[in-house]
Amino acid sequence: MAPTLKVETLSQDAAKVAIEACEAKARSMGIPMNIAVTDSATHLLAFSRMDGAKITSISIAIDKAFTASGHRIGTHLYKEAVWPGGPAFGIGNSNGNRFTTIGGGLPVLGRNKEILGAIGCSTGTPAQDQEVAQAGIDALQKLLQSTRAKL
């Protein structure tokens, strides 16, 4: 039994790669976004508020990344579970009201499905936010694969 754990997490450089990919996708869609990247412990690594992104969406993007990182699944997956009577009803009141079930937060998973961090996007519809976050995930997966190939 090991008395300590080694936890992999996204680096600042990786967070910048994710932000750039998300910004490019948001521009191609014509929707300015707030984009947050967290590490594996839910802490904010990087944030971008594109010109024209909604000010009220700043904390939403950060909380989407927080939720996806902390619970290790996309925020959109809670949709049915949070309705009154659902198994996760009231979960939005947890974690200082930071837990969000609005789509647009996606976890970044490592090769063994361990959580490395997350991306949260907000300003568009939940589906648009998720599409932009997915662009960041795709860029990070490419980066991770290229790095593994060099090892």
Rank of each mutant, 00 (worst) to 15 (best):
A2V: 02
A149M: 10
A88Q: 12
F66A: 09
I62N: 12
H43T: 08
D39P: 07
K16G: 15
H71Q: 15
L45E: 05
K142N: 10
N95G: 13
S69P: 02
F47T: 09
R49W: 01
R27K: 15
S28L: 14
E20M: 12
I137M: 00
N112E: 06
I60W: 02
R111Q: 08
G110E: 01
E23P: 05
I19E: 04
Q145P: 00
N34L: 09
K64Q: 11
R72W: 08
H76S: 09
R98C: 08
D129P: 01
E20W: 12
T42L: 14
K113S: 14
V37D: 01
G86P: 01
A127C: 05
L144F: 06
H43K: 10
S146N: 09
K79Q: 14
P84M: 15
A81Q: 09
Q145I: 11
C22E: 01
K113C: 09
A139H: 04
Q145D: 13
E20I: 08
D63P: 10
A61S: 13
A61C: 09
E20L: 13
K54R: 08
M1A: 13
G136N: 06
E20Y: 14
F89V: 04
K113V: 07
A139Y: 07
T67I: 09
I58C: 15
A81N: 11
A26H: 06
K25M: 10
E131S: 02
G104Y: 01
K64D: 05
A26G: 04
Y78H: 13
I55P: 09
E80L: 14
G96I: 10
C121Y: 00
Q128R: 06
S40H: 07
K150D: 14
A88M: 14
I102W: 03
A14K: 07
G136R: 03
L77A: 10
A18H: 08
T101L: 05
V7T: 06
T67E: 02
V7N: 08
G86C: 07
P107T: 05
M1I: 11
E80C: 09
A88E: 10
G90I: 05
G85C: 07
G30S: 02
G104I: 06
V132W: 02
G110F: 02
L116E: 04
K79D: 11
E80I: 12
R72Q: 14
A88F: 15
L140F: 06
G117Q: 03
V108Y: 00
Q134A: 05
P3G: 10
L144S: 12
R111I: 08
T75F: 04
C121N: 02
S59Q: 15
